[in-house]
Design a protein around this nucleic acid. Structure first.
Lengths: 241, 241
DNA sequence: CTTAGTTTGTTCGCTACCGAACAGACCGCA
DNA sequence: TGCGGTCTGTTCGGTAGCGAACAAACTAAG
């Protein structure tokens, strides 16, 4: 449905709006991924539950997903944000059939869905694309390493700003759906903690929000508030890809 | 020097005491890694500074290394522990020429040193070994994801116990060199915080220490104190390798 | 054995954040 | 237009851990 809709609007998928897929020409994409499919993913949708078989990789276009660590008591906390700059399913290229993490959709939107076998086959047949995916895996690897430091050493405000910036980078426009409750879970803090910070950001004109809609009104200001982790991760990605 | 010493003691290196290298037969190892070398690494030695060219991979035998995230203000904090179960240099197999993290030796000992080119070549020529390294990369990947949650949500005591257990797994015997100061840096906390916890562990007979020497006296007890992250990471490694 | 350097013990006041709870505001739906 | 559910504002007391500082214990080297 979405597929045919897009067909008429774009040049028969010559644009994927995903940084990794864009490294392939349209004929290469068609050849490597005969079963590729554009799907719509809804907010809160669980794309992969822990230990669920990794049958597909997803290359986000306009959606944003999160890699979530789930603890025994059910507590969830975000480990990584994945959007149009990357892919869900790095473990597939590392020969895993499943993973302990959970993948949840943060911000609804579209993503390209590719069967795991086709992805693995593509790694074999196309060395250039294989290289791109490996470098993305490396970027994600170092993102997680930065996250361990960030979660331990930075304040809610800093991490909140970081999260807003990296989500803003991945969505269209300046407004997206986001509740304090949800952000609190992602950051691993209490909801009132986020509310307090959010109010302060709004009072300072950096963001504006109302009942589940967040708008970034001053990116530059947020960058000043954010911890260095935002820039560190972005720059490392830029160096690699 | 170490090389010739070992030659006389072991069956000409038929035993590597590294879980990953052990997946190769001795002839395979000789063929794949003509330049492999057993080296001694000293405590506190910086094996890789941030952004230093990744010329060698290291497969620890008796040493224990740490992947460290370095922040702009110079603060350091451990992201992962690497010992005889794994390797230093996963980014090499992900086509990186360097990385933002730092690699430091925690506990001195021996490691097998392999030129990056030989490792990359081995990935090409030996699919089974390539698979093992990919799976280890995946294990490390999920270890970092667990670490983001752990650093945010678990107490000093829990993380302290986790660290002691995972180091204990990687060294010979129950005693190793470790100061509170050093452990505090690894965990990203103050030194008195560690001293307090350490004293409590000692009072409860779980460990015993004096002036830079730590002895694990009750592993089982430590496992009870530790957060779930120790077991989660260990089990995930076990499933993969 | 002495001394200098390292390691550990312990204290202080302070702050960020927690867990819980409740009130008010907003929004979609009947 | 009102009602019920969702979202945000705000408060409370409590605690884990911070930063700084200093004292005591140990150990190695001369």
């Amino acid at each position: 449905m979405i597929e045919s809709h897009m067909e008429t609007q774009t040049q028969t998928h010559s644009q994927t709006r995903n940084a990794l897929l864009e490294r392939l020409s349209e004929p290469e994409r068609r050849a490597l991924f005969p079963s590729i499919e554009l799907v719509e993913i809804s907010p809160k949708e669980v794309v992969y539950a822990p230990r669920q078989a990794l049958k597909y990789a997803y290359f986000p276009e306009t959606c944003v997903m999160s890699k979530i660590t789930v603890l025994e008591d059910g507590t969830e906390i975000e480990a990584a944000t994945i959007g149009n700059e990357g892919m869900v399913g790095v473990p597939i290229i590392l020969a895993a059939i499943d993973m302990p993490s959970k993948i949840v959709c943060q911000i609804g939107g579209t993503a390209w869905k590719v069967p795991a076998e086709e992805l693995m086959q593509a790694m074999e047949t196309n060395p250039e694309f294989s290289l791109v995916l490996k470098k993305y895996a490396q970027a994600l690897f170092e993102l997680l390493a930065q996250g361990t430091a960030c979660n331990r050493l930075h304040t809610i405000e800093q991490r909140c700003a970081r999260w807003l910036l990296s989500t803003h980078d991945r969505v269209e426009g300046d407004t997206f759906s986001l509740t304090h409750e949800f952000l609190a879970t992602m950051l691993g803090v209490r909801r009132p903690g986020v509310s307090l910070v959010a109010k302060s950001l709004q009072d300072n004109g950096l963001v504006s929000y109302k009942h589940g809609r967040m708008t970034i009104t001053n990116r530059h200001g947020l960058e000043g508030i954010s911890c260095e982790c935002y820039a560190a991760v972005r720059d490392n990605y830029g160096r690699l890809i």
